[in-house]
Nucleic acid binder design. Structure first.
Length: 413
DNA sequence: TCTGGGGTCCTAGGACCC
DNA sequence: TCTGGGGTCCTAGGACCC
């Protein structure tokens, strides 16, 4: 097997630099919302030279590099570019797995020989990207006999290079790779392995499988395989991808909204966005979860199954509120609130409305969706959400709201 | 000035049914 | 009167990923 793993370099940052010439060559950081203390989602190559890394707070980044330029992330823009580079890749093979917005796996076992081997194939892809996506949007490529090793390989290829782990090299790689470097082994598991005297992948491979199974259950079996340089997970091509399993949103709260009324408003806003995404996908969900975080960064959450699956923000909101009340209410100071809807299924349209009032609500929701599709998310909102000024921040102020209202009137909505 | 936002998968106990 | 065991659903929570 020949597996390629492509990882886009400083993805969000390089897409921004490609789109805005004045950002090129500068240390830039793409981060979240400006209204709260945010973290670095992506740092440009120039910013990384100052030691800025993703996950760091924006405050730390500014301390490391006072001249850093902060850019608000634009998920739609990145998704569009992802679609474009996946289109390039499927010209080489249909066996493309879209692992995340900036990472893909390719199985080129069949195709590599026709392109003069995996190395040449990888170079051809990089050249296509340069030509079709622009000089600033580059990728690193790892080549290996399976996905786990290809993901290890790409780390050696960054930034912008190609690294190939051939089968003969695998034993040496296992000896020198710490377990925590593998995708799927986080700090907790790495810590427990350390206590068992296991530091490298080779140590893992030498540990009796039964011992790992006993300590880690199903995961232990996989760990044992990884320790021998094997990876049983097949490549899941994009055309076989399963539907999403849950939809939700969460928000960290600025100080002014950390009281129960503020949290409720934000929760309603999050339920609204969640329900809207469900409707856009033609799905209804049956299980509602909430998550809250207090000032000490402790999380609390719970879930409940509804009698009837729904895509209605009010149902989701009420279920979440009841759950929160049943689990001790809001903490003294809430720093994050989230809602998630699970156990999704396609929505079935009943030709006879069971409850006419529900049908009216549905029609209202769909009409609101159409307005927002056309004029943006801020065009309409619940009064209590508007009251907490979230939307003014999101849409750039009252001026824009008036403009939308006028446009709606002009179009007879 | 502590620490975003979107997800997936696994475990384990209890309720309930046959 | 005392009792088995399998299956499924529900819920809470942990771990991990980008």
């Amino acid at each position: 097997m020949v597996i390629l793993h492509l990882d886009m370099d400083s993805y969000f940052a390089s897409v921004e630099q490609q789109a805005n010439p004045h950002l090129r060559g500068k240390p830039i950081v793409v981060s979240g919302r400006p209204d709260i203390h945010s973290v670095v989602a992506a740092a440009s190559r120039e910013a990384k030279r100052y030691g800025i890394r993703s996950g760091m707070t924006t405050w730390e980044a500014a301390k490391l590099c006072p001249s850093v330029v902060f850019v608000s992330g634009d998920p739609d823009k990145y998704e569009t570019v992802t679609r474009r580079f996946v289109e390039i890749l499927v010209r080489y093979t249909p066996m493309v797995e879209v692992y995340s917005i900036d990472e893909v796996f390719l199985d080129v076992t069949q195709e590599a020989p026709q392109h003069g081997g995996p190395l040449r194939l990888a170079r051809a892809i990089q050249a296509d990207f340069r030509r079709e996506l622009g000089e600033w949007v580059t990728c690193s490529v790892g080549i290996a006999p399976n996905k786990m090793l290809a993901k290890l390989a790409v780390e050696r290829a960054k930034p912008g290079g190609i690294a190939w782990i051939v089968p003969e090299e695998v034993p040496a790689v296992l000896e020198e790779t710490p377990v925590g470097a593998v995708c799927g082994i986080g700090p907790r598991i790495a810590g427990r392995l350390e206590l068992m005297g296991i530091r490298t992948l080779a140590d893992l491979g030498r540990c009796p499988p039964a011992r790992l199974k006993h300590a880690f259950g199903v995961q232990g079996t996989v760990l044992s395989l990884w320790g021998r340089g094997l990876d049983p997970t097949p490549l899941l091509p994009y055309w076989q991808e399963e539907e999403v399993k849950s939809v939700g949103h969460s928000h960290a709260l600025p100080r002014v909204l950390r009281h129960p009324d503020g949290v409720r408003s934000v929760l309603l806003y999050l339920c609204d966005r969640t329900a809207r995404r469900l409707r856009a996908k033609g799905l209804v969900g049956r299980v509602v979860h909430f998550a809250l975080r207090d000032a000490q960064m402790r999380y609390r959450g719970a879930q409940r199954a509804l009698g009837v699956p729904t895509d209605d923000e009010d149902r989701i909101f009420r279920a979440a509120l009841e759950l929160i009340e049943a689990h001790g209410g809001f903490p003294e100071e809430t720093t994050l609130v989230g809602v998630r809807v699970d156990d999704l299924q396609p929505k079935v349209e009943t030709p006879w409305p069971l409850f006419p009032r529900d049908r009216r609500r549905e029609r209202l929701a769909l009409a609101c969706d159409r307005i927002r599709d056309r004029y943006g998310e801020g065009a309409l909102s619940w009064g209590s959400v508007y009251a907490c000024r979230l939307l003014t921040a999101a849409t750039g102020g009252i001026g824009r709201q008036k403009e939308i209202a006028l446009a709606c009137r002009r179009d007879g909505i």
